[in-house]
C-alpha cells in the first residue's frame, strides 16, 4: 500500500486535533504552549504534502508552500523565545504555571 495525500492529511488533522484539545483541556501553561506548537506543525505537514502531491502542469510542485513552511518554523521559534520568557517571568512573580492560579483579572 502506497502512502497517499489522504494519509498525510489524516495525520495532520489528528495532530491539529490533539494540539487543539490539549490547549482546551490541559491546565499547565507549558503543556498548552507545546500543544500550540503541535498545531503549527500539523499545518506544516499538510502544506508539504499538498505541495508534493499537487504537481503543476510542468510536473513541479508549487514551492511557495514549502517556503511558507520555513517561515512558519522561523516564526514559531521566535514565538517560543518570547513566550517562554513571558512564562518564566510569570513563574518568578507567582511561583506557578497553572492556569487556575492566573485569575487576578476578572474573567
Amino acid at each position: 500500500m502506497s502512502v497517499t495525500l489522504n494519509h498525510y492529511l489524516l495525520a495532520s488533522g489528528l495532530l491539529f486535533a490533539i494540539g487543539f484539545s490539549g490547549v482546551l483541556l490541559r491546565r499547565n501553561i507549558l503543556t498548552i504552549f507545546m500543544c500550540l506548537e503541535l498545531m503549527l506543525n500539523a499545518a506544516n505537514l499538510s502544506l508539504v504534502a499538498f505541495s508534493r502531491f499537487n504537481l503543476g502542469p510542468d510536473g513541479l510542485p508549487n514551492y511557495n508552500a514549502q517556503i511558507l513552511v520555513f517561515f512558519i518554523i522561523t516564526v514559531a521559534a521566535a514565538e517560543v523565545a518570547v513566550g517562554l520568557a513571558i512564562i518564566v517571568a510569570l513563574y518568578r512573580a507567582r511561583q506557578t504555571t497553572h492556569v487556575e492560579d492566573i485569575n487576578s483579572l476578572k474573567f
Binding site: 501553561i29 504552549f33 500550540l36 503549527l40 500539523a42 513566550g83 512564562i87 510569570l90 483579572l105
Partner: peptide
Amino acid sequence: LEAGVKYLILGALSTG
C-alpha cells in the same frame, strides 16, 4: 504579566 500570558496563548492559538 497575566494579560501577557493570556494574550500569548490565545494569540498563538489564532496563529494555529
